[in-house]
Amino acid sequence: MAAAPAQYSRGRSTVAAFRLSVLQFLADPQWLVPSMIAPVIFALVSFELFRVAGPYFLTYAILGAGMMSMWGQTLYGSGWATGQDREFGTLEPTIQAPTPYLYVVLGRVLWNVLSGLIGGLIVYLVILVVAGGPPTVTDPLGFALLFVFIMVTLASVGVVFAAFYVYTRYAGFIQNIGEFAFYIGTGCMFPVVLLPFFTNPISLLFPPTWGLDALRYLSIPGYRGFEWGFWGDLLGAVATTTAYLGFAGMVFYRVERHVLEEGNLSEY
């Protein structure tokens, strides 16, 4: 009788997926440029528009643009990597490996969040140069912590998006239509409260909406966002993020079952 096979580890699989993402990025790093164009332009325009309104609007502009880049990177990256797995034909061997696919996705999402952060930093540097100095932030430590947390909220959305990409090859199509709506809906571009009332309930379905509103409360004095204020935002962000991650854990098993029934793993 053959020896027992090696035991996979979820953590190691996540690290491996992260590592492969980095290697693939390094093999072809120029894609960062096109994904930076829109956020940088947005940052410059809002800077010009808001410069007269006082120092905090600079923060506002940077937050919007930075989030836009991170949001795009996370969503795109996470779903897109699975879409690429379909295209490369690597989805089948990956699903066939003993590690649940969720842990591979997690590794990639981590990389995407990190690369989104690089994008956010570039936006920040551009603004720094244009504005001639750093923006005013009232609570730098709180800001930093909340910022990291927002990256987690983004990751949770990324994981759920990846599930869609495993589920169907049409996910990319749906995401392309939805992307701009997300930027607006989650308050990257304008505070959500400025939007028509009917969009609010929808945008509240996305954890980053809550997180971003909290960040603005924290860093812009006199900011008027959601009526429930900073702590309400924070609570909402934690709750929705938990829900997303729980949902992802749940759906991944079913999604995998579904694709094995359909036999569409190699379609793209």
């Binding site: 491996a16 693939q24 093999a27």
Partner: peptide
């Protein structure tokens, strides 16, 4: 994975299989 080396492809799957 076309953009990385053959060895890296093997490393990746070695990790997934433990």
């Amino acid at each position: 994975y076309n953009r990385v080396s053959g060895r890296e492809n093997l490393r990746y799957f070695a990790d997934l299989y433990g």
